[in-house]
């Protein structure tokens, strides 16, 4: 057993032991979105030729679940540990900065991917969704969950109270995910918001992920993957440096 593996395993257990809350609940939420939006919007929108709106919606909802849950996992775990003080249990041992970062990151990615897979599988019961290029979908899911997991580490370190983290979630994460084309193609937006969307990394995560299902998307999957991967790597570096500096952890 290495320190890294133990911390990863502990972080995994932390959400797995309460999976009704951490996995089942977000899957159910996504299904409710699917039910309501599909029912009300089906007749209005056909985003891609030959793709039913309900089917169009599924990858977006799955990816939104991946992203939100990856963020929720690392951010809430770190913030709670700081608040209750039991963060000392991971600060006292000789875990390297890299082990510390990777354990929180990978556990967050794992939770995101498990929930995303749950949404996809559950939605399959209601909707037929093609899976044209699963490789593209997986690559975007991994890089996207990594980006949000790292962002969650930063938010968790930064937040001292529940409401600070809630503000982060409500005013940054939620708007960015909703304005990323989960429910629509950005081509249907007015020009200003189209341009705006191109600065939102989450747009590329959703768009590239969706390409894996339908073989078509708003932008090239190569462009998406390049942007998503480089954002992920850049944010990871930043997070690693933050951890190494001891900011708000070893103050």
């Amino acid at each position: 057993m290495t320190g890294f593996y133990t911390l990863f395993y502990k972080e995994w257990l932390r959400f797995w032991k309460v999976k009704v809350q951490t996995i089942l609940a977000p899957v159910l939420t996504a299904l409710l979105y699917l039910l309501v939006f599909a029912h009300t919007l089906r007749s209005h929108a056909e985003v891609y030729p030959g793709v039913e709106y309900t089917a169009f919606l599924v990858p977006g909802l799955a990816m939104m679940a991946v992203l939100q849950n990856a963020f929720a996992n690392s951010s809430s775990s770190l913030m709670q540990s700081k608040m209750t003080g039991n963060i000392v249990f991971v600060l006292l041992p000789p875990l390297s900065h890299r082990e510390f970062f990777l354990a929180y990151l990978l556990a967050a990615m794992a939770r995101g991917l498990v929930v995303g897979a749950g949404v996809f599988v559950a939605a399959m019961a209601f909707v037929d969704v093609p899976l044209a290029n699963p490789g593209w979908a997986l690559a975007h899911a991994i890089a996207g969950s990594g980006f949000m997991g790292a962002l969650g580490v930063i938010a968790g370190i930064q937040s001292d109270k529940v409401d600070q983290l809630a503000a982060f979630q409500n005013f940054i994460i939620l708007p960015l995910t909703f304005l990323s084309g989960v429910f629509y193609s950005i081509h249907s937006l007015p020009p200003f918001w189209q341009t705006f969307s191109h600065f939102n990394p989450i747009f590329y995560m959703i768009d590239g992920f969706r390409y894996g299902f339908f073989g078509q998307a708003d932008v090239s999957p190569w462009l998406s993957l390049t942007i998503v991967t480089s954002s992920f790597l850049a944010l990871s570096l930043l997070t690693f440096l933050l951890i190494r500096s001891g900011y708000k952890l070893r103050h």
Partner: peptide, 23 residues
Amino acid sequence: ELVFDPFFTVREALQIQSGYYGI
């Protein structure tokens, strides 16, 4: 401070702590 991790039992807490040291 009397800190603890509410997710685990006594033995689990000790095993996990030991794991952090790579033993």
